[in-house]
Amino acid sequence: MSYQATKTTCPYCGCGCNFYLESVDGRLVGIVPDKSSPVNQGKLCVKGWTAFEFVQSPRRLQTPLIRKNGELVPASWDEALDFVAGGLKKIVKESGPRSVGVFASAKITNEDNYVLQKFARAGIGTNNVDHCARL
């Protein structure tokens, strides 16, 4: 049996509590609050205590999906990404970069957001980038 505890940051609210994700043989089994964190000082709320549960939910998306004959069906990464890249290129060529919009997110990491807005601005060529900070 291999047990690991990995220090990380809670995905739920803006407090940013720190905890250790506990895993046994590659499956998450629990959470231990970080006592040295200046934010939560060894405490967590009910959301933090259970923040490992949804990760390995059977409802997680397992593969890319493409809509065919009105239905979303599993596809390979190559097929899905080529489809999206091709579609975006065509639309940008025909209607210009501002005919594309991008929603960034308050739930993904800084690095994810940075790469996303860089792609939107330097790749697609649009400042149509927003996320739901307002909401």
Binding site: C13, A106, T109, N113, R121, V129, D130, H131
Partner: peptide
């Protein structure tokens, strides 16, 4: 901030008027 990384999404330019 409501969601965990609203601050970061703003910092990283996830907004239409700023890099």
């Amino acid at each position: 901030r409501g969601q965990n990384n609203v601050q970061g999404a703003c910092d990283m330019g996830g907004l239409p008027n700023v890099y």
